[in-house]
């Protein structure tokens, strides 16, 4: 895109360089700006904290590999909380790429807390066509997922004892980078009344607020910032918290760039008019 215009080449690349600096420097020097926990994230934390031990939580990895830097810290924080509270965690994915990510995350965090596969957590695997899969789980989980991710019969695992459908599930955490968390609201919350916890990319944050106000979702954890807040609540510094300083400087850079760009525009316009 730069080859056709020599002058563009410079400005554009200078801005790219500024962006890289704005992100790299805070990551190296770590000023450690104070972090505020929002009510939306606190609500999720309180809800999970209030669940009785052994409650079943479904965590659905409804994202693609493209948003991993946002989704992984989020899933890690929520999983740590669930395992710390001794909840039973059932993993699944409604997008194919979330499948491998989900399996790896569950095993890694499960091992951190010495949890047994099949006893304390399980990974059911992937199902296509979100709305249909969500509805099917509302009727009979063992019919929807006859086998786990690697093909072993699901009914053989102790965690599945007494787990039939959403009636036995305390909450569904949807770690999503698109509109699948909305599908969970539309099809699982509305129809079956199950509690939905959206852990989503920042891109989708504003679209979830109407459901927050109408209490169709428990709370809202959005983006790397949401993950950082959760890490703070768990008293554990992770990738998200360490990224927050860079997030701040990069935002300031963007705002400054918009301001300069507009000032230049108004100057030029003013010049033309006079």
């Amino acid at each position: 895109m730069a080859e056709a215009n020599g002058k563009r080449f410079h400005t554009r690349h200078l801005i790219f360089l500024l962006m890289a600096i704005a992100v790299v420097l805070p990551l190296i020097f770590k000023p450690g700006l104070p972090l505020r926990v929002t009510k939306e994230v606190q609500d999720i934390y309180d809800y999970i904290e209030g669940l009785p031990e052994e409650s079943v939580v479904i965590i659905s990895f409804d994202h693609e590999a493209s948003s991993l830097p946002e989704m992984v810290p989020m899933a890690e924080a929520l999983l740590r909380h669930c395992f710390r509270k001794n909840l039973k965690v059932c993993g699944m994915a409604l997008l194919a790429e979330g499948t491998s990510v989900g399996d790896a995350n569950l095993r890694r965090i499960g091992a951190e807390y010495n949890k047994e596969y099949g006893e304390d957590y399980i990974f059911w695997g992937f199902r296509p066509q979100h709305e249909v899969a969500i509805l099917a789980l509302g009727e009979d989980i063992t019919r929807e997922f006859k086998t786990d991710y690697t093909g072993r019969p699901i009914s053989g695992f102790p965690i599945m004892q007494g787990l039939r459908n959403y009636q036995n599930v305390a909450a569904v955490i949807s770690v999503g980078d698109g509109d699948i968390p909305i599908y969970w609201v539309n099809y699982a919350q509305a129809r079956y009344g199950v509690n939905i916890i959206p852990a989503i990319t920042a891109v989708m944050a504003t679209t979830m607020y109407p459901f927050l106000q109408s209490e169709q979702i428990v709370g809202l954890a959005a983006g790397l910032k949401g993950a950082a807040e959760y890490e703070k609540l768990l008293n554990r510094t992770g990738l998200a918290t360490r990224g927050m300083d860079a997030q701040s400087t990069a935002h300031v850079l963007i705002i400054v760039l918009i301001a300069i760009g507009n000032i230049i525009m108004f100057r030029q316009r003013g010049g033309k008019r006079s």
Binding site: R12, I15, E64, A65, S66, L68, E97, L253, G261
Partner: peptide, 17 residues
Amino acid sequence: QSTMFSLLAFFVASAAF
């Protein structure tokens, strides 16, 4: 795949200006 999408951070900066 995640790098591909992180390119957008640069494009946003350039578009901001």
